[in-house]
Design a protein around this nucleic acid. Structure first.
Lengths: 110, 110
DNA sequence: ACATCATATGACAATACCATCATGTGTCAA
DNA sequence: TTGACACATGATGGTATTGTCATATGATGT
């Protein structure tokens, strides 16, 4: 039972397969993905991310908490703001490759 | 529900975000991921995949149908068997990079 | 034709997930 | 210290996904 949602207890994955699944679950949501894509352009604070994505503050905070908990993003506090950034270059590359995959699919389909 | 205002045209198009989310949803399940990892070693038929993963025939068929429907795997029939394989090299690479990401995380954590 | 093998499909209960509302916590300025 | 600001957290209803059971389809051998 692998639970990812912010409103339920987050469980530590035991196996590699579990870990990999948990990782992809984080990417498998429109809101979280929008946030990650926004962060590809560089770090931003919560309000900024809300502006970039059009999502509510509450939702963004929840999703960032989930992403942060799994070390997909890192955070830095500055006064009453919190800035978030992609944790490492892999995230960026993985998203890039996925976009490539989708592009290639389109070509084959016509 | 994800609502993006029209004046935020700097963002990636809605459809791309949607597509990317759908793609990751396919990878965000232990059974499907186990199947994809099994197929990294080369094509295999349903019974073979069941053997490699320990999953039931019904479940494997269901998940393969989902993966096939989204062109993540391709199929080839031979008599009464159906052989499945990863649709393109991108899948392989994406999974590889994700594993790298997890490996790097572990190093940083100890 | 019949039995059997290999795989596919439909329906369904259990569970997981999502977005939202209401509210809480910490920071700064006056 | 009071109020506004920036963000975090808890709970909840609605919805989507998961895996299983029962059953269907199609190919092969006798």
């Amino acid at each position: 039972m692998m639970v990812l949602s912010y409103d339920v207890t987050i469980m530590k994955p035991n196996t590699k397969l579990d870990e990999l699944t948990s990782f992809y679950k984080l990417l498998a949501n429109e809101s979280r993905l929008a946030i990650l894509l926004a962060l590809r352009d560089g770090e931003d604070n919560v309000a900024g991310i809300c502006g970039q994505t059009g999502l509510s503050q509450t939702l963004v905070s929840h999703q960032l908490a989930a992403l942060h908990h799994s070390d997909v993003v890192r955070s830095r506090k500055d006064g009453r703001r919190t800035f978030y950034a992609l944790a490492d270059k892999h995230i960026d590359i993985i998203v890039g490759f996925a976009l490539d995959h989708l592009a290639e699919k389109e070509v084959h389909h016509e």
